[in-house]
Simulated assay, not measured.
Amino acid sequence: MTAVRLTQRDIARLARVSQTTVSLVLNNRTEASARIPAETRDRVLKVIRETGYVADPLARRLLQQRNQILGVFTYESVFPSASADFYHPFLSGIEESAEERGLDLLLFTSAPVTDGRRRVFHANNRLRLADGSLLLGRHIPTEELTRLVAEQYPFVSVGRRDNPDSSPPVPYVGADYVSATATLTEQAFELGHQRVAFVGPGEGAESSADRLLGFRRIAARGLHLPPADRALDDVLEELLSKNVTAVFVEDLADADALADAARRRGLTVPGDLSVVALGDASRPIPSDADYSGFHIPRKEMGRQAVGLLESILSGEPADPQQLLPCELVEGSTLAAPRGL
């Protein structure tokens, strides 16, 4: 059969296997490929022979020169107990996918803290030890994103990022906060809530802006209360003064604290005030309450970020910007307002 211009994704589809399996077979990574059943390996090779598939020469040369190491850079410290639970699923997904692909991970820890933030670029940065890197963190300085793109360093952000220069796009695997927040806000209105509020920054990080955008899509005139340095009791006081019956809180930890403040005032949740958590807790919380809201697909974001970075490094076509759906949680803290 005459050779045609196919990709590893095409081969994977025809052989009914994953693209990772095709990559392992093609590049004969002994430790990882040894786990592939002989029947599966033969099926992949049969499709390659029948289609006349030829891997892109440049991609193969780049692959041969690779260290088979992916870097992981975290803009926030991920190991202290205050953040370990939140970041663990991301790292677990990254580790799991890297292991499946026969790759090593290099965690960059030498970056100094400047003005309260870690920086990937510094005098002794070791980015080039890795074939490419995954970026993890709530805030990524725009100047660092600009430089990474300008220098054409292979990277993928775990989380949606805007390119300050608009082009080319920043590669990322993120969560679809807009759709999830809009769906929950619509549920509140369907239950009979007429006065709703959003508590959270709503700006700065893309994840914050996306949540507020989802809220605004349904509740264009809903109240927005950026917490900043305000005490939660003050936030609660304003909610009550505006007769708000359902509040959407960006972080589960803040949602729990706000619900606790409401109960101390003698209010019931969700009877007097429905509290919806727009994501998981970024710090440990003492409560085991079943909050209505959504979970962030953290582990799958980590897994797919590795896959996207591998596609970039191997020259395989892939959507450079991917959003994964959030898992909606019915919970027990969103109900019809009292009296309905």
Rank of each mutant, 00 (worst) to 15 (best):
G279A: 02
I94P: 08
N67G: 05
V156I: 04
P325A: 08
G202V: 06
L105E: 15
A55P: 12
P325I: 09
D10L: 05
L14Q: 10
G302L: 09
Q152F: 00
E238L: 01
A261T: 05
A262E: 02
G192D: 12
S23A: 07
R298C: 01
P325E: 09
D319H: 12
E310G: 02
R265G: 00
F155E: 03
R126T: 03
A82M: 15
S77A: 07
E144W: 12
D42I: 15
A253N: 10
R35C: 13
P168Q: 01
L212W: 04
F121E: 00
G192Q: 10
Q194F: 14
L324W: 12
G174W: 08
P164A: 05
E327Q: 14
A123P: 13
E250G: 11
H139Q: 13
D162I: 09
F189G: 10
F121A: 00
R60K: 05
L136W: 10
A305V: 02
Q68R: 03
Q68D: 06
L135V: 02
F198R: 14
R101Y: 02
N28D: 10
S83E: 05
G266A: 05
E203F: 14
V44E: 12
I11L: 11
L145P: 00
F121D: 00
L223K: 11
F155Q: 04
H295R: 10
S92H: 12
V275H: 06
I69A: 10
E203G: 13
P201I: 11
T181G: 05
D233T: 09
V170P: 05
Y75Q: 15
L240R: 12
L225R: 04
V156E: 07
T181H: 08
S110I: 08
G214A: 03
T114K: 14
F121V: 01
R117V: 11
A197W: 04
P112R: 07
L91Y: 05
T40D: 06
P37C: 11
G200T: 15
R13Y: 03
L323A: 01
H224E: 08
I69F: 04
R230E: 09
A180S: 13
V329K: 10
R264Q: 08
F86Y: 14
P112N: 05
A336R: 12
D162M: 07
G159P: 14
G293Y: 02
G202K: 14
A3F: 01
S33Y: 03
L309Q: 02
S97K: 15
T146S: 09
T40Y: 08
S81T: 13
